[in-house]
Amino acid sequence: MSNGMKFRYPVDGNDFTRAGEISSKVKKQLKQLGLPPEVIRRVAIIMYEAEINMVIHANGGTIDVEITPEQIRLVFSDTGPGIPDIEKAMQEGFSTASHEVRELGFGAGMGLPNMKKNSDEMKIDTRIGVGTIMDLIVKI
């Protein structure tokens, strides 16, 4: 991992209109690195789903991106309410999002399953009232 590149981005939890800016920045960066389009697409979907989640559920957080020749590791950390039932949260269609969030076009309960589908590995460490860390790997 010594030849990896590491980046950290803070996510502003108060501004829904700007959610996705970090995903956009990372997507551009991966394009400049000349990574395969399919890998870029998977990373973009995971990042954007996670970024939206952090804004609508957790009042922001931090995104760590680590790029090595073999894989891209994405770690999303927040100090939000935690996920009470991960098994349920992983089911397509299950959502705790508010009516307002649904009106914005999200909160359909597709986020976590979609993140899993687009990654090679996904670990979730969540504690009620403390926060959630999601650790995902996309192999190149």
């Binding site: 996705g20 995903s23 997507k27 697409r41 979907i45 954007y48 914005l104 076009g105």
Partner: peptide
């Protein structure tokens, strides 16, 4: 028929 900035972002993410 949705009109907010995330529509454009979503399009961007999905190429």
């Amino acid at each position: 028929g949705l009109r907010n900035s995330q529509v454009v972002r979503t399009a961007e993410m999905m190429d």
